[in-house]
């Protein structure tokens, strides 16, 4: 396959960026999108140019490190992570636009790499349980109803990649935050911090400068793990409940 790539190049956080055009040839349809970028970078390095910086780690679709907005879609045209997107999703001769996640809470570090530590701070605000850790507890010690376990697991699938923020027209982190809140709030292990968790995490989310939710639904469409839009509804419910309870105290 021969492709034309238009890639966002930006030297550092303070520099102005621009879309640069590159031609790549000899791309196999079985390559992943990241392997295609590796091919481009090898050529750039041989030519003595600066390779394109992009985030990646496991390349198995489970770590949440890779990003990229490809032709306007977070993680590209398939509902998966960029590392699991294969070049067979494109046609020979295509022009592909590659841009970084866009949100003021995710500043560009270099080229296609953005700083997603705002997510870490949201987690630090309440995305944990305070049960003592140690060796794995006896599985039957805390009974969890099957529907609750399924619900928690569905939301626990979130890998924190930030595609929801990138796809949201308001740069909101509602889907990420709601996935974490719902995952822990439904389980007995997460019950002691049920109210403080949602209040603190939403407050931190606002503090980081993410936008608000207008229920456009772009986040859930972009999410490679299929976190449903109703996750946000669930968090809203938890937040209102916690606010009412806090007022009674």
């Amino acid at each position: 396959m021969k492709l034309t790539l238009r890639v966002w190049r930006q030297k550092n956080a303070d520099a102005d960026g621009t879309m640069s055009t590159y031609e790549v040839d000899g791309i196999s349809p079985d390559m992943s999108f990241l392997e295609m970028l590796d091919t481009l970078n090898e050529e750039l390095i041989l030519k003595g140019e600066d390779p394109v910086a992009f985030d990646h780690d496991c390349r198995e679709g489970i770590c949440g490190a890779c990003s990229l907005v490809i032709n306007g879609d977070a993680h590209g045209p398939e509902r998966t992570t960029t590392c699991q997107l294969h070049m067979r999703s494109f046609r020979d001769g295509d022009t592909i636009d590659v841009e970084p996640w866009r949100a003021s809470a995710f500043p560009v570090v270099k080229d296609l790499v953005v700083d997603r530590s705002a997510f870490d701070r949201i987690i630090q605000a309440g995305g944990y349980i305070t049960a003592p850790t140690g060796s794995a507890p006896e599985a039957h010690a805390t009974p969890v109803p099957k529907p609750d376990a399924d619900f928690a697991f569905e939301h626990a699938e979130c890998i924190g990649c930030g595609a929801c923020v990138a796809a949201c027209p308001n740069g909101a982190a509602m889907l990420f935050t709601s996935a974490k809140v719902n995952h822990l709030n439904v389980l007995p292990q997460g019950a002691p911090e049920r109210e403080t968790r949602v209040l603190d995490m939403v407050a931190q989310m606002d503090e980081e400068g993410f936008g608000g939710c207008t229920l456009a639904g772009e986040c859930a469409t972009a999410c490679p793990k299929g976190i449903p839009l109703t996750s946000i509804t669930g968090m809203n419910k938890e937040w209102l409940r916690a606010t009412r309870k806090a007022a009674k105290r």
Partner: peptide
């Protein structure tokens, strides 16, 4: 707040959400 949270547009963007939204 929303407009401030998404200051730069994507070069490649397409309308997605419904007209009403």
């Amino acid at each position: 707040r929303d407009i401030k949270a998404r200051p730069s547009k994507y070069v490649h963007s397409k309308p997605r959400a419904s007209y009403a939204t």
